[in-house]
């Protein structure tokens, strides 16, 4: 039997899914053990038990100076920036994507401009953003928007252009105006693709968020990681990294679920 036709059973598939995670954990535990047995005060690869203890302390013990649990404060601050940046980008990209995709005049005017804009490395603009928008929340949100908006616009306008011409013409023969075509034909077909595009851009969004927080912030997940780096507090950094990964994973999962629930027609087949 050819390899391409061999399929794992349920149990084997579950095992294979878990395998790389387990292997990484074991490799880490061994590496940590080797270093710690050579030097018990080594900070580079803290023992898994140390990380767990640190995580418990971070999640439950309030900060001595402010009385707040910094972990949750950081999470809230970062999520706020991220959701604001991604939300604004999605909204603007939907509108501009529809305009570029449906209206030849806007396409002629904007498509090239957006293509060039999307080539600017957003992080290179970060100093400008800090100077123009200050060191507060605005510059971080703006960095996320600048980082993912051009990609979203290019993707979504392309998706609108992919809608078969026949469907648009059909809507025209039913008396639909440009507005109705945008609202009732293009937009509903664009929304599931918007969710896909947002899922893809969540990675870059986190990247820009952490970069902005690392450079100038007084709270946030990225800020904390780069703060404790000075003390080589790997246990704290690793806890935060795992937490960020978990957040990103849950967001991705939630968007996939939303796409299936809100747009059942995308899954409908004979």
């Amino acid at each position: 039997m050819r390899l391409i036709n061999r399929k794992p059973g349920v149990a084997l598939a579950a095992f294979l899914t878990a395998l790389p995670f387990v292997l990484v954990l074991i490799a880490y535990a061994i590496g940590s053990d080797i270093r710690l047995s050579a030097n018990p005060s080594d900070k580079l690869l803290p023992a898994p038990s140390t990380i767990l203890a640190t995580a418990e302390r971070l999640l439950t013990e309030p900060d001595k100076r402010s009385g707040q649990i910094l972990f949750w404060k950081d999470t809230w601050a970062s999520l706020q920036r991220l959701l604001l940046g991604v939300g604004i980008s999605a909204l603007v990209a939907t509108v501009i994507g529809l305009l570029i995709g449906l209206l030849p005049h806007v396409r002629a005017g904007l498509a090239g401009f957006v293509a060039v804009l999307s080539m600017i490395p957003p992080l290179a603009l970060l100093p400008i953003l800090f100077i123009v928008f200050g060191l507060g929340e605005l510059s971080k949100v703006v960095l996320i928007v600048i980082g993912i908006l051009p990609f979203l616009i290019r993707d979504l306008s392309g998706r609108v252009l992919e809608i078969p011409r026949e469907m648009i013409v059909k809507a025209e023969t039913l008396g639909a105006s440009s507005w109705v075509i945008a609202l009732r034909v293009a937009l509903p077909q664009l929304l599931p693709r918007l969710i896909q595009a947002v899922r893809l851009s969540l990675g870059p969004a986190w990247l820009f968020l952490i970069a902005a927080e690392a450079i100038a912030a007084d709270q946030g997940l990225g800020y904390r990681i780069f703060l404790v780096r000075r003390y080589l507090a790997m246990d704290v950094i690793l806890t935060y990294v795992i937490w960020i990964t978990a957040l990103a994973f849950v967001m991705d999962l939630a968007l996939r679920w939303l796409s299936r629930k809100a747009f059942p027609w995308t899954e409908a087949t004979l």
Binding site: E166, K170, F263
Partner: peptide, 18 residues
Amino acid sequence: PGLDRGVVFQRYSVFPHM
């Protein structure tokens, strides 16, 4: 194209999201 002309193509003549 307008209301006075109706059309049916070989494909893509109905709206998949409705």
